[in-house]
Structures are given as structure tokens and as C-alpha cells.
């Protein structure tokens, strides 16, 4: 009878200890690295390029940057895999692009959760406006070439005047 009570007290103490320690052991395993982007969640570009910057909640993390054309990342592309905390993208055509990033401490660890996604709206300048500027600039340039060229051929006429 005394043995049974000791055993019961022992079990209660053990259970109590377990109740205290197990959750913290579990939460430590849950401390996977989180990543956040440095900028707003909606970016725009009229030139098809943008720089993405992010950081994890600790040093020396390996990152994966993923992109997709749909907000639910149905058909994702892995853009970058490494330790850099930025990536510059360019040459994008009109449309919406979505990015997210995740991290892990090393090759063998599990990935942390994905960051909040960033949306990039790419809308190139009006082509008509571009051609207008191009043409006017071109005309102005041609005037200069013409004027300089013409006078270059007639440089000899100054020799008499400069006597």
C-alpha cells in the first residue's frame, strides 16, 4: 500500500515534470526560421525590373526565392537558392508576378515557412509615347549632324576670314 502511494506520487511528479518540459522541447523544434521582405508587399515597375530584398530571423540561413504568375503559387519557379538576401530581376514582360521566400539553417534541415508574398505589377510605358520621344530626339539629333556635317565640309571657307 505504501509502495503504491509512492509510485503514484512518483508518477504525478514525473507527469508534472513532463508537462513542464515537453512543450518547450516541442516548441524549440518548431522554431523554424521565418523570413520577411524588406519592402512593401505590392511593387510596380514600368521598366520590367525590380530588386527584391529580404532577411531571416537569424544569421547564416539558406534561402529559396520562388516566383509564380498566380497568387496561389500553383506553377512556381525556383528563382534563387543560396545565402544572398537580395535578388535583382529584370527583363520582365507586362503582367503580375508573385514572390515568396523561405529559409533553413543548412542543407539538411527542414525548410521554414514561406514568407508573406510580394506582388509585382509590371506595366511597361506606353509604346506610342516612347516612339514619340524617340522620333523627336532623332530629329533633333539629325539637325545637329546635318549642321555640323555641312559646316565640316565647308571649313576651308573660314581660312580666308581668319587672316
Amino acid at each position: 500500500m505504501i509502495m503504491n502511494r509512492r509510485l503514484r506520487i512518483g508518477r504525478i511528479i514525473l507527469t508534472g515534470l513532463a508537462a513542464l518540459t515537453v512543450p518547450s522541447v516541442l516548441s524549440h523544434a518548431q522554431e523554424l526560421p521565418r523570413v520577411t521582405f524588406h519592402h512593401e508587399s505590392r511593387l510596380t515597375t514600368s521598366e520590367g525590373h525590380t530588386g527584391l530584398e529580404w532577411s531571416g530571423d537569424r544569421d547564416s540561413l539558406m534561402y529559396e526565392l520562388q516566383s509564380a504568375r498566380e497568387p496561389d503559387f500553383i506553377d512556381p519557379t525556383s528563382q534563387y537558392h543560396g545565402t544572398d538576401e537580395a535578388s535583382f530581376l529584370s527583363g520582365l514582360t507586362d503582367g503580375r508576378y508573385f514572390f515568396r521566400v523561405r529559409a533553413r539553417p543548412s542543407e539538411n534541415d527542414t525548410w521554414g515557412p514561406w514568407s508573406e508574398s510580394v506582388e509585382l505589377v509590371c506595366e511597361h510605358h506606353s509604346l506610342t509615347f516612347a516612339w514619340t520621344l524617340f522620333t523627336s530626339g532623332g530629329l533633333l539629333f539629325l539637325f545637329i549632324v546635318f549642321f555640323v556635317g555641312l559646316n565640316a565640309r565647308l571649313l576651308h571657307r573660314f581660312e580666308r576670314n581668319d587672316a
Binding site: S46, E47, G48, L89, S90, G91, L92, T93, H124, H125, S126, L127, F129, A130, W131, L133, F134, S136, G137, G138, L140, F141, I144
Partner: peptide
């Protein structure tokens, strides 16, 4: 991966051409 870089009809680039040229001159 960066198709617009090969685009002949790249608006931002087109409008910069002569502006830069005149700056240089």
C-alpha cells in the same frame, strides 16, 4: 528568363536612347 531584354519594342529603352545621346553630346 528575361525576355524583355531582347525586345526591340522596349518602351523604357526606346525613350531613353536620344535623351542620353543628347546628354552625351
Amino acid at each position: 528568363n528575361r525576355p524583355a531584354l531582347l525586345n526591340v519594342l522596349f518602351p523604357a529603352a526606346i525613350m531613353a536612347v536620344f535623351n542620353n545621346l543628347l546628354f552625351g553630346i
